[in-house]
Design a protein around this nucleic acid. Structure first.
Lengths: 198, 198
DNA sequence: ACAGTTCTCTACCAAATGGTAGAGAAAGGT
DNA sequence: ACCTTTCTCTACCATTTGGTAGAGAACTGT
């Protein structure tokens, strides 16, 4: 049967959404296969085991986010607050289009450590660079002084948290229409700017 | 056999930790039973089904957090920034002692909506009160102006996010000793103060 | 001593889980 | 035309899942 898009890519795509929304262990291969419209064994042809599938999903997600973030940083102005805003906006777009993306990132902490270690070591240099950058900007007096490691984590937690908890937003009456999304994004940016301004 | 503490309470306790760390669907009744040191059917005697157990775990957690928060608010000073600090510190203590507590809160969004609705409607008045309080303090000029609903969600996302993602903190070299915890808590409070100061 | 309630157990069960074995279709290269 | 590789399928399998049935302790009040 002729495939419109690669079966492998379709599987990765659907699996990303399901894993991100419901968690790795909560999603069965049968469910993914049904969603893709293919037999379970087709999954196991492309990915020899569920663990392997999870690993590939994580790798693809990390790559996608890394590209978006890199691009945002490269084309961002020099002022650190503008830079943070650029990165947050860049991540926000794909994250709200697919809540599962950042949800996936959160899922990593539930993996057996050996599985997540590969990813961790790959992301580590990026994180280290972010922390170093933040430290130097703090020294410059262009960002509010503080423990740069923890501040980086706090910014990450805020963005990831707000993008992956529709429940919290629903509880305060927020609606996910286009106007709501823009308000949320702008309020998030203002919140972070206020938190980081010297 | 004479029970030291109530079997029911022990089950709720262990189930809270397991659910909070790994997710509802990822934890089996057998695993909980093994952890408690009891037969699975003892679980099903106390809680007629897994759904019922989940519901009770959520109810107990909500009650525990509500008590802590209420107490913090009552004994807090009038200044809104001090009040936020008091609540955050109050939640932070049990949250880091048991990361599963806030993890559980996050898990709610994965529940079938009918199961979480009961909880949602119970929490709704508290949330509404918080939003109204924040709006009036913004009008007073004692908090940075903004959309009070979204700001409440952002504060919640920051606290929950940082307390439930040890992975993000590990990635920046943070250690969970007592000194690290205090630094984290203080940095979190400063972060939120900066974000909310007019 | 005894009956009744409370509590925990062993023994099952049907359904779903991740995974194996291997057949057969589709396509390309020669 | 034919062989090989690529891809998807049906048919199973052992294990684990949430849950049922019902027996038997252990504590109660009388």
């Amino acid at each position: 049967m002729a495939r419109r898009t690669g079966t492998r890519e379709t599987i990765l795509d659907r699996a990303t959404d399901l894993f991100g929304v419901r968690g790795f262990e909560a999603v069965s291969l049968d469910q993914i296969a049904a969603e893709v419209g293919v037999a379970k064994q087709t999954l196991l042809y492309w990915f020899p085991s569920k663990d392997e599938l999870i690993e590939q999903v994580l790798a693809a997600t990390a790559a996608e986010l890394a590209i978006v973030i890199e691009a945002a940083i490269r084309s961002a102005p020099d002022d650190p607050l503008d830079r943070v805003e650029a990165v947050v906006k860049a991540v926000f777009r794909p994250a709200v289009r697919r809540p599962a993306l950042l949800g996936l990132v959160r899922e990593i902490s539930r993996l057996p450590s050996n599985a997540s270690d590969a990813l961790t070591t790959r992301v580590e240099p990026l994180v280290a660079r972010a922390v170093e950058w933040m430290r130097s900007e703090m020294d410059n007096g262009r960002l509010r002084a503080g423990d740069p490691s923890i501040i980086v984590s706090l910014v990450y937690a805020t963005v990831t948290g707000i993008a992956t908890e529709p429940e919290a937003l629903r509880a305060v009456g927020w609606r996910a229409d286009i106007a709501g999304l823009r308000r949320l994004r702008d309020e998030l940016v203002r919140f972070l700017r206020a938190a980081l301004t010297p």
